[in-house]
Each structure stands twice: as C-alpha cells, then as structure tokens.
Amino acid sequence: MSNAHSPVAHHFYTVEQQKDSATIGMWLFLATEILLFGALFTAYAVYRYRFPDAFMVASSRMDWKMGGLNTLFLIISSVTMVFAVSSAEKGRRGGLLGFLAATGFFGTLFLVVKYFEYMHHYHDRDVPGLNFHWTGAPELANGAQMFFFLYFFMTGLHALHMLVGLGLLIWIFITAYQGKYSPEYYNPVEMFGLYWHFVDLVWIFLFPLLYLLGAHLPPGGGGHH
C-alpha cells in the first residue's frame, strides 16, 4: 500500500517506474480492446460483403443527424479531456475539475441521444430478437436484420464502455476534488484520458460504417411502414 505521503506504491522504486508501468499497462489494455472490437468489425465486413444492398438500405433507416450530433459531442469531450490532463500536469486543480465536468457532460449527452435513438428504433420495430419487423423488399430482410443485430451489438458494447468511462470519471473527479493529484503525480487522470480517447475513436469508426452507409438514400429507403 502506498503510504500517506508518497504516491509511489511500495513495490516500485521511483515515480517514473510507476508511471511507465501504468502507461504500458494501459496501452496493452487498449490493445485488448482493439481485438475485442476487431472481431466485431471483422464480422461486419464479412456480412456487408455478403449483403451489400441490405446493409445499405438498412443503414438508411439510421438517423445520421443524431449520429453526427453524437460524433460532435464525443469529439468535444475528447478535447476537454485533453485540457483536463494538461491542467493536471500544470497542477491547476480548478481547471482539472472544470474540464472533467465538461467531459462528463458531453459524455452524458451522448448517452442521452443514444437512448432516444434506441427508443426510436424500438418504435420502428428494428430490434432483432425483440420486435424486428421488415416491410421492405423481402429479399433484403435477412441482411437487414443482420445489420441491425450488429448495430445494436456494436453500439451497445460501445455504450457500455461509455458507462464504465463515466463511472471512472466520477471517481477521478472525486479524487481530484480531494486534491490527490499534483504535477508529480497525475497518472490516473492521464490513463483515464487514454481510455476516453480510445472509446471516442471506436465511435469514429462506428459512425460512418453504420450511419453513413445509406445516408444518400431517402430516409428509411425501401424500409418499412
């Protein structure tokens, strides 16, 4: 256990050793995340290749404006996160708290929008396994359902990562409020920043693959109702 005065845990010898360890550990963790999502992106590629038309038509049922708004929110939150880390580095506690709060705010906005999107799809009976109902061209039904399964699975996993991120953010905020961080020691803030950027980055890939694929078609093109 680290003693009250030193942020260096008992089994490390120096601050640098501790910091490097955390950094390598975090990057390795992100590598595992890439493979976790990577398997899903692979599945997406396989089925988009198999059902090109169905994927395009199903994608036109997405609201790219909502998705675009969310992309914006996440990019802003990533920027505020950068400022949060740099405030921590400079030892500005007020700035750190403010930027963390802003990051949390935009992260939450993202989830709120996502919630409305999901509700929308629910009402439109787009949810495989729950109420999926396809009224478009019948030969596209299977591929469309596949698209929506992947959509919910991938964005769901992403949203789960956002939720975990917000939980961590609250913890960082509280410890920052308690004054645990200093220019010598702000590891957790920086590591959390890496995580947050990573989760944003996943979305940057999800957005075009899921929302923009059919954005040139009329909304819901060939779809139901």
Partner: peptide, 26 residues
Amino acid sequence: PVLGITMVLIAVERFAKVGIFDPALG
C-alpha cells in the same frame, strides 16, 4: 479478447434467438 467476444456472441444468440452465426438469417 476475440474468444471473449465470441463467447458473448453465442450467449446473446441463444438468449435473443437471433445472432450473427444463425444460418437462418444467412
């Protein structure tokens, strides 16, 4: 991680009765 997500995909497919490995869906 690839095994992990694959296991989750199986569990979900069993639970929701629909999933990416389902031949009925293509």
